[in-house]
Computed example of a mutant assay.
Amino acid sequence: MNLEQALLVIGNAHDNELPVAALDVAKTNWSAFYAELEQIIDQFVADDSSLTDEQNAVLFFGTLLLAELKYSPALSKCLQLFSCSDSFLTPIEGVFGDAITELTSTLFYNVANGNTQALSDYIVAGHQAMYGKASAMEAVFAQYEVGTIDKAELSEHITLWLAAFLALPSSISSFLMSALADSCIEYQLDDLKSQFIGLCDKDVFDEYRFKQDEVKAWQSLDGRKLIESGIIQTEFNLVDTLNSWAEGDGSDDEVFDNPSIDSLSSDNLSNDDLDVFDSLMGEGGLLSNILYDENTILENSVPVSSLATAGRNDLCPCGSNKKYKKCCLQ
């Protein structure tokens, strides 16, 4: 398989079929492959709606290969790529899905190769990449964890981040303030305790990300460290990671096994199931209007204000018996 063929295979990867052989070809011909990837990144940055499905697939796999290969020359491109709004249903979330929250910190850590200043500049920049900035903060904390920077350097970065978040109050800034407070507590940066607690009366924290009461308590419950716990993978393997996602890996994160609504059509049912299907989807059936009837949706909706809330270290209110940070917060 040559590189051109590999690009076609990667671009047409579907469902659980990872393009393992094609990715090996991409790594073997890395210079040429990266040139193609760089062009796609530039195109996405210029117009995030202009890529074909095939280009989106190459962007997804290629960007994560940067983390596996620790390709530091791509740092500036990565930071450009992840400098756009990355919340649910944004174009970049459409490309990377769960990897936005699960793997971007690993990408930034491995590609930055100790360049915490570039990550810090990205964090204080004026773009709207909420999860990207949170991931960059984690990558800097991980550099502190391994001793690349010392406590004094980390504190300098944190001071700049706090000033930036407080200067432009927003829901994004509140999310980042809570994420930062969480990390400072987990890494036992007690010198900053009074400063964060002093902000608790200013409504600057995101109660869904990390509660104000948790900031006031200032207690690390499990001593979570990013590299130690595997949240950031210093020896990242793309295929192994995606295979573990597809298999569930003991969790509910199955990103390569997402059946579409088409699988509910009568064409995909056996004759024995047709009567059941008709009774559910036909007129008056239990599911006949659940997808399309606005009144039905409104009548069966639960107000957001009535939903249970949880701190990052609390049990998830969904009933999974996992901590919130390991479940629905992700």
Rank of each mutant, 00 (worst) to 15 (best):
41 I>A: 04
42 D>T: 13
45 V>Q: 04
45 V>S: 10
47 D>C: 00
47 D>Y: 09
51 L>V: 11
53 D>S: 11
54 E>V: 04
54 E>N: 07
54 E>H: 10
55 Q>P: 02
56 N>F: 02
58 V>A: 04
58 V>R: 04
61 F>H: 07
61 F>K: 04
61 F>L: 00
63 T>I: 01
64 L>G: 00
64 L>M: 14
65 L>T: 02
66 L>C: 08
70 K>N: 06
71 Y>S: 03
71 Y>R: 02
71 Y>N: 08
73 P>S: 08
73 P>Y: 07
74 A>L: 04
76 S>P: 02
76 S>R: 12
76 S>C: 08
77 K>G: 01
78 C>F: 09
78 C>T: 09
80 Q>A: 14
83 S>Q: 04
84 C>E: 12
84 C>I: 15
85 S>G: 07
85 S>R: 13
88 F>E: 14
88 F>G: 01
88 F>D: 14
88 F>Y: 15
89 L>Q: 15
92 I>F: 11
92 I>P: 02
92 I>W: 12
92 I>A: 04
93 E>H: 14
98 D>K: 11
99 A>T: 03
100 I>K: 06
100 I>W: 00
100 I>N: 01
100 I>M: 14
101 T>G: 09
102 E>W: 02
102 E>V: 09
104 T>K: 03
105 S>N: 05
105 S>A: 13
105 S>D: 11
106 T>V: 01
107 L>I: 01
107 L>Y: 05
107 L>V: 03
107 L>D: 10
108 F>N: 05
108 F>P: 03
108 F>R: 07
109 Y>R: 06
109 Y>W: 01
110 N>Q: 03
113 N>S: 15
114 G>P: 11
116 T>F: 15
117 Q>R: 13
119 L>D: 13
119 L>W: 01
120 S>D: 14
121 D>Q: 15
121 D>W: 05
122 Y>S: 11
122 Y>R: 13
123 I>M: 07
125 A>D: 15
125 A>T: 08
